[in-house]
């Protein structure tokens, strides 16, 4: 029998996932191996070669200080992506803890924790991050703290909902009836059943966090000059956007491309984990 409309849809999803994996591998290659291959100093200035357009020698051209833009994008990758991974990691750790405690304990604990989460979520994220940075001062570590302080609430809310759905499942009363301790229920019953969704959401949020990190740096509140952070590069190049657009466009594309790749990856992982979309012989 011919393949259905549905199956074509799913196979398209699967090829998107493949693209996501390939893109992520490319990004990982450039981020980890890249700096060793293109090992020129990203901060070395060369005022004889200011604002050169892309060429065989300077793939992405040079900036207003004569620095090679390609080298800067590559060496900035670990900064931008590293910040994002740290933010998502810390945010998810806090979010999972708070979410599980709220969902598992219920009652007053749940109410208090969720009110805090709602307050966090009611601020526009970037403004809250600005406020945190304003208090702590600039710097990469503070940028991570500021962004994680915004992100954790998103994860906490998701984890709480997922925890409650596990609490309402039929296997939870069964696990209690057989006599499992609370700790074991949390670690062997709740966590394994929610972690898949959390990984998906975390992966999906890497993209936006990279962009948010770039925004903060662009505003001058993250990494500092002359570090090759993408947001900072965009900021530095904005005055030359007419004469030398590559200074801003190259790091911009890098940020968007990375965000896009992680999105495809996240959705792909989601499809893999979600049993409803899994290929399965439903014999009956």
């Amino acid at each position: 029998m011919k393949k259905g409309i549905k199956s074509r849809f799913f196979s398209r999803r699967r090829s998107l996932f493949t693209i996501g994996i390939i893109c992520s591998v490319i990004i990982a290659f450039f981020t980890i191996i890249g700096p060793f291959i293109w090992n020129a100093d990203p901060t070395a200035t060369d005022y004889a070669n200011q604002c050169l357009p892309p060429s065989g020698e300077h793939w992405f051209g040079t900036d207003n200080n004569g620095r090679d833009v390609f080298t800067r994008v590559i060496s900035g990758a670990h900064l931008s992506i590293g910040v994002a991974l740290a933010v998502v990691g810390i945010g998810a750790a806090i979010g999972i803890t708070v979410g599980i405690v709220a969902g598992f304990a219920g009652g007053a604990v749940d109410t208090i924790l969720m009110r805090i989460v709602e307050i966090m979520l009611s601020f526009p994220g970037i403004i809250f991050a600005l406020a945190v940075l304003g208090t702590l001062g600039n710097g990469t570590e503070h940028q991570i703290i500021a962004l994680a302080a915004v992100r954790w609430a998103h994860y906490a809310r998701l984890v709480r909902i997922e925890t409650i759905s596990v609490m309402n499942s039929e296997y939870l009363p069964a696990s209690r009836a057989i006599g499992n301790s609370k700790l074991r229920i949390v670690f062997r019953y709740i966590l394994p059943n929610i972690i898949g969704r959390v990984i998906v959401i975390a992966t999906l949020s890497i993209g936006p966090v990279i962009l948010a990190g770039a925004s903060l740096s662009y505003l001058g509140l993250g990494a500092q000059i002359p570090s090759p952070e993408w947001g900072l590069m965009i900021n530095g190049g904005k005055e030359y956007i007419r004469q030398a657009p590559w200074i801003t466009v190259a790091p911009g594309i890098a940020a968007v491309f990375t965000a896009f790749s992680f999105n495809l990856l996240g959705e792909g992982i989601g499809d893999l984990i979600d049993p409803r979309l899994k290929e399965k012989a439903e014999v009956d």
């Binding site: 296997y171 009363p173 069964a174 009836a177 006599g179 059943n193």
Partner: peptide, 18 residues
């Protein structure tokens, strides 16, 4: 709990799926 035990209705949903 050791002495009073229960068998549930839906055997395919009473075990941790993971």
């Amino acid at each position: 709990r050791k002495n009073v035990q229960i068998i549930f209705q839906n055997p395919q949903q009473v075990f941790n799926p993971r």
